[in-house]
């Protein structure tokens, strides 16, 4: 009953984490990712009075969002259709900037940045998922000093990315501690693959705890009774992990991976500080900033940021449709 006591402990110590972990398995599986959902009204669309009241409550937020997000987005898209002259008013050039970026003189930079961004996305998300998952499993166990471990694991996530980048640049310096430990003179920021892997390493170090945190929240909603039952039925640790833990924590993983993908597709500060984009580590976001702020080409920069937006959106949509839908709908028998 050791495990059972741990769950009780958790309820006492972290009531918020397990609040939604009601015994009904249907509620349970969506508990973690649903934390931010606002929604009494949505559940009962029939009650229109309540719905109208909700509308008025949400309206101020919508107005603010339209002002601070909607307007700039529309402006950026409109601006991307104009050229970047010096000393005269920009002229409408249709999709000229897009053509230039994708197939014109900027194509080489654009595709290189895209493939670099995709490389970072693929590698870091996989590494972070594996490591974050392992961290979450460890943190979910009952042992002495668990709260200390939880706090320690979260430290990298609490460090601002820019600070983290400077820290790792020093660590990966030609005379830094990494080279000292491995006893070789690797120029981490001086050639392509060492630079790329150093960035992957630093990003994984920083954000694996984020995945760990989300997965941990998912793990905590799994009732220990299910494990007890499985144990009684003779399921071994591997079987319990594959047949109970993984399916039940899947929604949390799906959302964690989604967040990370969205984040890393926009990665900017780490490579910017680490290499300034040298050695083929320039990402899409860096290209956007370079064009719009560095070269003062607002039109081209807007076009690139719109392209980045579309790419991010597409990747995320495919992910949700193909992978996410299966996981998210799995227990509902496909009703979406």
């Amino acid at each position: 009953m050791k495990a059972g006591r741990a769950v009780l402990d958790d309820v006492v110590r972290h009531p918020d984490m397990t609040l939604e972990g009601a015994p009904d398995p249907r509620t349970r599986t969506q508990a973690a990712p649903d934390g931010a959902r606002a929604g009494g009204a949505r559940r009962r669309p029939g009650r229109s009075r309540e719905g109208r009241f909700a509308f008025w409550l949400v309206l101020p937020t919508l107005i603010v969002l339209a002002g601070v997000i909607g307007y700039p987005v529309v402006r950026a898209v409109v601006r991307s259709l104009y050229d970047d002259p010096v000393g005269r008013t920009p002229e409408f050039i249709g999709l000229g900037n897009y053509a230039e970026a994708v197939v014109g003189s900027g194509a080489e930079d654009f595709w290189a940045a895209l493939s670099t961004t995709m490389f970072f996305t693929g590698t870091t998300v996989v590494l972070e998922l594996v490591i974050g998952m392992a961290m979450a499993l460890v943190m979910n166990r009952a042992f002495r000093g668990r709260s200390i471990v939880r706090a320690v694991v979260l430290v990298p996530w609490a460090i601002p990315t820019a600070v983290c980048a400077v820290l790792w640049r020093w660590t990966f310096d030609a005379n830094g501690i990494v080279n000292h430990l491995i006893g070789q003179q690797v120029l981490w920021t001086g050639s392509e693959w060492p630079a790329k892997w150093a960035i992957v390493f630093a990003d994984t170090w920083k954000t694996a705890p984020f995945i760990a945190l989300l997965v941990l929240a998912g793990l905590q909603t799994i009732s220990q009774e299910i494990y007890e039952a499985a144990r009684v039925d003779g399921a071994g640790p591997v079987r319990r992990f594959v047949s109970i833990t993984l399916p039940l924590v899947r929604p949390a993983i799906v959302v964690a991976v989604l967040f990370r993908m969205l984040d890393v597709l926009r990665i900017y500060d780490l490579p910017q500080i680490f290499t300034h984009g040298a050695n083929d580590t320039r990402t899409l976001s860096m290209l956007v900033v370079e064009e719009s702020i560095g070269n003062l080409k607002a039109g081209m920069g807007s076009a690139l940021s719109t392209l980045t937006f579309l790419i991010v959106f597409l990747v995320a949509l495919v992910y949700i449709r193909v992978l996410g839908a299966r996981v998210l709908n799995g227990r509902d028998g496909g009703a979406a």
Binding site: R75, L262, S285, A298, G301, S302, F309, F313
Partner: peptide, 17 residues
């Protein structure tokens, strides 16, 4: 996805007009 992606476009575009 929408919120994050939209925020990105908004955050990154300069306006030099």
């Amino acid at each position: 996805v929408l919120a994050a992606a939209v925020g990105m476009v908004a955050g990154c575009s300069g306006d030099a007009e």
